[in-house]
């Protein structure tokens, strides 16, 4: 028997972005209702794939994140459960109604503010990583073979609509590193909006796949073909990989995404301009190095895109000193 797989689904629930997405002047307008029905179908497909497959759904709302569903604690009966019905497979119906109700509840709870805080994607990502990757049910611990007990392959699928939040660079990177350590694959589907640098890196570094949704009317087909095969199957079923990954980082001082960054040689903090003292580790850099670096900076930094002519530190790295790096 092949191992069961666990899917943590993170749904970006930014009201303003979904409003923009549904506008009819987009080439393929996608309303939240349509999106949700596709996602729920995908979720059912995942659960149909194998009896033991588990699921957790997280929502990233403006300013907060929460767990919307988890098959680990869904076994207890609830008074809000939909009545049993002979025409549908009950676990599917249960998941769908719980997820839809919870999203409805959370969206209703959003206060009307003039300015919407950015979505708490990092919070949702961290919660997803904390979710225990255990096989469903208590009796599955006994399996034949030696390592079969732990062979759930966990993965996270992020359905993102919001743009990058450069302030969250460090937490996102930390999440990526812990995902690597936990051997969790992060898949990203960019449903609306421009490409996000951080999520591209997340997918790249954890061996997942990043897809920018081109034809948004075929959302379900994209989901099924690219994100349904569990990581253990991807050596048979090829899923799209990224051609090029945007490796740019955000500086620690102004949280801007930079083309050329200056890296502290002691603690590897990134800055957008040469600084005399590293704000993270308090290392003082010699004046000479700073002048050197300042002189070698291009006068007008390119507005966007990766520049190829980034200057390198002219001499061997001074110690302590600062080095510019091409990201």
């Amino acid at each position: 028997m092949n191992p069961s797989s666990h899917l943590s689904l993170i749904i970006d629930l930014s009201p303003s972005q979904w409003h923009l997405s549904a506008q009819s002047n987009n080439s393929y307008p996608l309303s939240f209702q349509t999106f949700l029905s596709h996602v729920l179908t995908f979720v059912n497909s995942h659960l149909a794939f194998k009896h033991e497959n588990t699921l957790a759904v997280f929502g990233a709302l403006p300013g907060r994140s929460m767990m919307l569903y988890s098959s680990l604690d869904a076994t207890s009966a609830n008074s809000n459960d939909p009545p049993a019905d002979a025409n549908s497979y009950r676990p599917f119906k249960l998941v769908n109604s719980v997820v839809a109700n919870n999203i409805q509840k959370e969206l209703d709870a959003i206060e009307r503010l003039t300015e919407e805080p950015p979505v708490a994607l990092v919070g949702a990502l961290t919660k997803a990583l904390c979710c225990k990757y255990q096989p469903f049910g208590p009796s599955t611990t006994r399996k034949r073979g030696n390592e079969a007990t732990t062979s759930v392959d966990p993965r996270i699928l992020i359905l993102s609509v919001s743009p990058d939040l450069s302030a969250s660079y460090i937490p996102v990177m930390n999440s990526i590193f812990s995902a690597q350590k936990l051997k969790v694959t992060i898949d990203v589907c960019k449903v609306f909006g421009e490409e996000t640098v951080f999520l591209q890196q997340a997918a790249h570094l954890t061996g997942g796949s990043y897809i920018y949704l081109g034809r948004r009317d075929a959302f379900l087909q994209y989901l099924t073909m690219s994100f349904l095969p569990p990581p253990s199957m991807r050596h048979i079923i090829a899923v799209p990989q990224q051609d090029k990954v945007d490796f740019r980082a955000a500086c620690f001082c102004h949280k801007n995404i930079v083309d050329i960054g200056f890296v502290c040689s002691v603690c590897l903090s990134i800055f957008c301009s040469p600084v005399p003292v590293c704000s993270t580790c308090r290392t003082k850099f010699p004046m000479k190095t700073l002048q050197h670096l300042n002189a070698s900076r291009p006068s007008i930094p390119p507005a966007n895109g990766v520049s190829n002519g980034a200057p390198r530190p002219p001499s061997a790295r001074p110690n302590p000193g600062m080095s510019a790096s091409l990201r």
Binding site: S45, N87, S88, R90, F92, N96
Partner: peptide
């Protein structure tokens, strides 16, 4: 499709 999305009138999942 009916199995995944629910619906239809086949009564195939058992009448509670």
């Amino acid at each position: 499709r009916h199995a995944i999305t629910g619906g239809g009138a086949s009564v195939s999942f058992g009448v509670p």
